[in-house]
Structures are given as C-alpha cells and as structure tokens.
C-alpha cells in the first residue's frame, strides 16, 4: 500500500520564474524508510513541505494515508505526519522540555489526563524524561532534536519526516537521533522520509531517491546508489568510506569488486584476497 503518493506535481515559489517541480511523481510505501538526497537547492525541503501542506502546489495531486490533500483536509494530513526540521533552536516552542512535547498535543485538543501519560512516555522513549523541566538553553543541539522527536512520537503519526534533522548535530547527537528513528521504523513500522547528506543516515534507508533540479534522477536501494562512487559527491552525498578506499586501492593497481560493500563486507573481501595469496 502507498502511504504517500505525489502525482503530476507542479510548483514554483511566488516571486520566482523557474519551476521547482514540473510534473513530478513519487510514491512512498507504508513502513518504508526513504532517504532523499541531492545537493543544496535541489528541491528536497520544498518537496516535503508540499507533502505536509506547508506550501501549496500550482497543480497536481498529493495523497497521504488515503487522504487527498486539499485546503479542507490539510489538518487531517498534518495529523498523520510528524516533522523534525534542521535547526534545533527554531522549532522549540515550549518554555521547557515537557511543555514543548505537549505543544502538539494541546493543538490536537488531547485531554489533559492523556497528555500527561503521552508526554512522559514520549520523553522516556527518547531518553529525555529526566530533563523534563529543563529550559532549551540548558540543552545541547542533539538533546533538543530528541525533544522534537518526542513531540512527534507523542502525536502518534504514521509518517515521520526529517528535514536534515541531524545536520547541525555533533556525531554523538546524530547517532542518538538516528537510533530512535531506526527503532520507530523497524519496531513500530512508521514510514520515514529523511532528507540528508549523511551517509550513515542514508545507508539505514531501504530506498534512496536522488533529486536534482526537481527531478528524480535515481531511485534505488542504497547499495546500488553507493556503488556509483564517482557521481556521489556531485549529487550531494558523502561517498561511503569503503568506496573511497576502493578508489585508492585502484590507484595502487589493485582490482576491486564493482558492487557496493559495507565496511564489514570490505574487510571480508580483503581477507579473501589475502588468503588467496
């Protein structure tokens, strides 16, 4: 079943001449983790804002969880989607951690008794319950993003969209956020769309779509995308380490396999190469 379907989408920003999307199509399956990559300005953020009804298309059809997106249904559609944005500071609405998680619940008019339960559960889920009364100034970027995720979890959406949510975090913060997403996707089968430049994040996805100038230029499993090592940098993705190593091995006159290898796969392959000697 398709969780999201984008059909014949046409969109440009009001002050601009050029179309960001001209007859764009995309389907996302239920329970799928889709990574969208592309260099800055390729239309990734615009696309997810259109899906969430934060921008309105000129024409075309967007369907989310069986609901056709129209001005009347936009709030229903948004209730299916939880979004985490890039800048941890600029999406923290509440005065402290628990207030921020509650903000979305208040908007959805959830009764207070249930709010108390959901806020606590969501914060425990992301490991932030002991910071419940902390103000945002006392949190690191990674902690703020975990709070943002708790805000999403508390609303029990079907889809989570991460708009470069890890790009401003340090490596530890990034790992913590990714681990939570991984669990939401694998255990609770939430559909995940993540916009990213980070190879670790992209490699967790089941499918990678490469955007360029508002068009899908590649749509495949991560391994296939990663194996085109020459083109990766150009499309806005840091090549995986194993591909960079292959490049250097070739320079040393060593024949390397064409298919993408993970780090472990690469060690195994080298081990075999050595055993053959």
């Amino acid at each position: 079943m398709d969780m999201i379907e984008v059909k014949n989408l046409i969109f440009k920003y009001p002050q601009q001449e050029v179309y960001n999307f001209n007859n764009f199509n995309l389907k996302v399956k239920k329970g799928e983790w889709l990574a969208i990559i592309g260099h800055n300005g390729s239309g990734k953020s615009t696309l997810v804002r259109l899906i969430d009804g934060l921008l309105a298309p000129e024409s075309g059809e967007i369907t989310v969880s069986g609901i056709k997106l129209t001005p009347e249904t936009v709030w229903d559609v948004r209730s299916k989607i939880g979004m985490v944005f890039q800048n941890p500071d600029n999406q923290f609405v509440g005065a402290n951690v628990e207030d921020d998680v509650a903000f979305g619940l208040e908007n959805a008019a959830i009764p207070r008794e249930e709010m108390l339960i959901r806020v606590k559960q969501a914060l425990e889920r992301v490991g932030m319950w002991k910071f419940a009364d902390h103000e945002p100034v006392r949190l690191s970027g990674g902690q703020k993003q975990r709070v943002a995720l708790a805000g999403v979890i508390a609303l029990k959406p079907e889809i989570v969209i991460l708009d470069e949510a890890t790009s401003m975090l340090d490596p530890e913060g990034r790992l913590a956020v990714l681990e939570i997403i991984h669990e939401l996707n694998r255990v609770e089968h939430l559909t995940v769309i993540s916009i990213t430049h980070d190879i670790d994040e992209a490699s967790k996805a089941q499918r990678v779509v490469v955007l360029d100038d508002g068009k899908v230029v590649q749509d495949d499993i991560p391994a296939e995308i990663f194996s085109h090592r020459a083109g990766l940098i150009k499309i806005g993705l840091e090549p995986p380490f194993s591909e960079k190593l292959k490049e250097e091995l070739i320079k040393q006159g060593i024949k390397v396999p064409d298919e993408y290898l993970t780090k472990e796969g690469m060690v195994d392959w080298l081990w075999q190469l050595f055993s053959k000697q």
Binding site: F241, K244, L245, E247, E248, L249, K251, Q252, G253, I254, L270, L273, F274, Q277
Partner: peptide, 16 residues
C-alpha cells in the same frame, strides 16, 4: 587516511 591505508594494504599484497 584512505591513502595511507591503501598504500599499506598494497605494499603488503605486492611484497607479501
């Protein structure tokens, strides 16, 4: 670095 890693692996392979 990748460069020094590749070199060390290559020299190992070539020179046994």
């Amino acid at each position: 670095t990748e460069v020094s890693l590749a070199r060390q692996i290559a020299s190992l392979l070539h020179e046994g």
